[in-house]
Design a protein around this nucleic acid. Structure first.
Lengths: 340, 340
DNA sequence: TTACTTTAGTATAACGTGAAAAAAACAAAA
DNA sequence: TTTTGTTTTTTTCACGTTATACTAAAGTAA
């Protein structure tokens, strides 16, 4: 590999001059500049990033900490981040925390999270990344798991509480929009298959659902709200329960596509026609939603956009560390298909 | 941040001594060693990776070039890589080529690939990665797109031809195994819904299918082989065609899960019972396979394992660059579900 | 001419580490 | 005591940059 010294020799100048030409840090005569540029060409010179970084303390690298790269919607977000920072000539150092497996003991989970996050963070800090983006798969408040950092930090999807910049979407607004969509199609008896009872997304989406009903002057029916566990089977089972009600709903809003798939299965087994006898809506817009029979109306999360925005925030914080924390909430869109 | 100099001062020795203690590069008296270790502790010292790298030329970083992080099975492979290299204290620099969009002009595509790959590679080289893993989503021979590299290179999933190490799975063996599985269940009239006519995976899987039939002394029926385009709709349409045959098959092997989903759709519309009247098998074991009605028997690709093995190979090549190229082909497993 | 300012380019010292060579300290033998 | 050999520690330089201070030359004004 050619070094600055080689270039300097070819151009018959000092390395300082070469450096000045490259960085434009000093005004030089056109002739010298030209000569140096030619030398750079002929030596096929590229600056050594390591030396540069050692000198400047900047690596032009963003550390991306993901809970699990295999978990949706992480790859989309990471894709958005990569694309965006690459435009500014930044690189991405990816560290996977492998947090996919669920530990059912709450305390164990929190402590395991803290340990792995700390390990991940210190690994990234050792690599001298200029900033860190944390990509969580779930709707969790977890900034309290982070030790104070001397570097910019942005949360994507999963978010912090107050101290840090984050980019996420609105559970509540999306659920409300979807409920309104159902109401707009003439439904008045709308049941909801929720996720785990006290989880954050369940609570927020439920609030959105209730808000939309109230807005429309519709009453909130206790029997129409049932709690699953985000899995297919619970959607299947709870739909059967809903069908056995005296006063059947005419629409079911499942809080994720997997439960919606289970719901559709139960309905088609019971020979309930979709959407004529029962409308079904989901949440997440997973691949499966397109291929259900009938294709599922659902909420599409702005995954790539979350990545892009998070990247823009980290770039801003890197260039100007005093930027105040920003809370960005991105709008979800309804994907209309035949199930409604 | 504390530096070696600080530690040396605290311990009352030279920086060289500190370096020797850290790297064990020379025998030192137990007292000095102890004193230095204490100093390291009290200064909370961590070595500066950048300086180390500049000096040694090694970054302990593996560059991972992915065609598109959003495309299955890339995240799983990347997860396997990350996990494995992290165990040896290596980091992962991820670069996404964003090759997801399909360019239908063949020449344009090849030249676009070459450009983006070259850009990605030079970006990784500039970052002084110790080795590169290329993760392709599709079954392509593409090592010819790479300029000769002075660093270890390993292909994962997508593979090179002869010069380089690669880790992949066997299209032919998997298709043969699945066909044998169908034959074992008593099927003699097995149709196949293939992918794009002349694509590599189509050819190889078809060979496997034909081989298994021949082995069992079954004849190969021209009408039972039809070509789709890997998409849901083609599975749907081709199944209808197969149903209209005089001599209907009793089993359909779709070369991916998406076409299998379309196939199941067509069958259930035609009131053909699965698996009683028609068995269906897919390939890929995407998430959707679990949730089809009935759940789909399919081939599970060893995605994580491919990542792990590719990582092991690159580590081997990094520590010993003279290791000869290895071609590793990993076995796929059949996931038995109710569609057969 | 002298003194001052501007311009163009250079020498040198960092950044934090590691390796080679040199030196110091110590022990054993003559 | 001196010599020789061995162990332990230090000095010094290099990795490839960049920033600062500097020199030299040239231009400007009194």
């Amino acid at each position: 590999m050619a070094t600055m010294k080689d270039v300097a020799e070819i151009a018959g100048v000092s390395t300082a001059t070469v450096s000045h030409v490259i960085n434009g840090s000093k005004k030089l005569s056109p002739q010298t500049t030209e000569r140096v540029l030619m030398a750079i060409q002929s030596a096929n010179y590229t600056p050594n990033t390591l030396a540069k970084s050692l000198r400047s303390g900047q690596t032009r690298t963003v550390g991306v900490l993901v809970e699990d790269i295999r978990g949706l919607p992480v790859p989309e977000i990471v894709g958005g981040i990569g694309e965006t920072i690459a435009k500014s000539g930044y690189r991405m150092l990816l560290f996977d925390l492998h947090l996919l497996e669920k530990l059912y003991n709450q305390y164990e989970q929190i402590s395991a999270y803290r340990t792995r996050i700390n390990n991940g963070v210190s690994l990234l800090l050792q690599a001298h990344v200029d900033g860190i983006i944390y990509v969580g798969m779930h709707d969790r408040h977890l900034d309290y798991l982070f030790d104070p950092l001397d570097r910019p930090l942005v949360f994507a999807y999963s978010h912090g509480t107050s101290q840090d910049t984050y980019v996420t979407y609105s559970n509540q607004d999306s659920a409300a929009a979807l409920t309104r969509h159902l109401i707009g199609r003439g439904h008045q008896k709308i049941a909801v298959i929720a996720g785990h009872p006290h989880s954050y997304p369940t609570m927020r989406r439920l609030t959105g659902y209730q808000l939309a009903l109230q807005e429309a002057g519709l009453s909130i029916h206790k029997d129409y709200i049932c709690y699953g566990d985000w899995e297919y089977e619970s959607g299947y089972r709870l739909t059967q329960e809903l069908l056995s009600l005296q006063d059947r709903p005419t629409a079911i809003f499942a809080m994720n596509d997997l439960m919606a798939a289970g719901c559709i299965h139960a309905l088609s087994e019971a020979k309930v026609r979709i959407p004529q006898d029962m409308a079904v809506a989901g949440f997440d817009n997973r691949e499966i939603a397109r291929y259900l029979q009938p294709p599922l109306t659902t909420i599409a999360l702005p995954t790539t956009e979350i990545g892009v925005k998070a990247a823009l925030h980290i770039m801003e914080l890197i260039t100007n560390p005093n930027t105040p924390p920003q809370k960005e909430i991105i709008h979800c869109s309804i994907v209309e298909r035949e199930s409604v």
